[in-house]
């Protein structure tokens, strides 16, 4: 297989397979979660589930003071790489073009050097959280093989994307193909690993908030 054939495969059938698994996986997992249902709460409601739930979805995006003081590193590095992922995935012109092709609409992009710098920051943050995880006894103890896999699959598209942009080590078609392939791997495992928190965070936060809301206490 020539490098252009490889590139054509990852842009065509490869991407198609990855998208099918990604979408089917997410929808099936959501259907399972939602249809399992919850036991009816027989206690008299003291407040609104909805307002408590919605409030928590937003409020949990910001760490409270004591959490921040307790684990400043985790919060800062975590924020950095999540924002970095958002910027590199959604605000890079070629990526927006891909979304536009699928959704039918696009949005403005950031200048390439900004995205480039952000990619470096994100890679550093991801390396830092891994180092932290491996050096902290407790964190290391609770880390599973899946966590390492997920970390690997998250940093791979960033590294390959950076290499493809700067043409490091290999020819441009190979680098671009490897970058797309790494994203496809991420898409395939996404619904079946902890990466699913990218979607389920809203459900779990809502549920936490809804319990408090029902009881009429602050969520």
């Amino acid at each position: 297989m020539s490098e252009i054939e490889f590139l054509n495969w990852v842009r065509g059938p490869g991407f198609q397979i990855a998208v099918i698994i990604f979408i089917a996986g997410i929808i099936i997992r959501f259907a399972e979660i939602l249809m399992l249902g919850r036991k009816a709460n027989l206690a008299e409601p003291k407040g609104s589930e909805m307002s408590g739930g919605l409030h928590t979805i937003v409020s949990r995006s910001f760490p409270d003071k004591s959490t921040f003081q307790r684990s400043t590193f985790t919060v800062v590095a975590g924020y950095l790489f999540h924002i970095g992922l958002f910027v590199t995935i959604f605000l890079f012109a070629p990526h927006i073009l891909m979304f536009k092709d699928i959704f039918g609409f696009g949005w403005p992009s950031l200048p390439t050097p900004v995205v480039d710098a952000m990619a470096v920051v994100t890679i550093i943050a991801l390396l830092a959280v891994l180092a932290h995880r491996m050096s902290d006894t407790v964190l290391k103890f609770i880390t599973t093989k899946e966590d390492y896999l997920v970390w690997m699959l998250t940093i791979l598209p960033l590294v390959t994307g950076y290499m493809a942009f700067h043409r490091i080590g290999m020819t441009a078609p190979t680098l671009l193909a490897l970058h797309i392939l790494s994203v496809e791997l991420l898409l395939v495992v996404f619904p079946f690993t902890k990466l699913m928190h990218g979607f389920t965070f809203a459900l779990s936060r809502w549920y936490n908030g809804a319990i408090s809301g029902y009881r009429g206490v602050q969520s």
Binding site: Q16, M98, D101
Partner: peptide, 12 residues
């Protein structure tokens, strides 16, 4: 180059 070559909207 960054666009998929298949019709991903339909696939999705």
């Amino acid at each position: 180059l960054s666009m998929p070559t298949e019709n991903i909207t339909q696939t999705a």
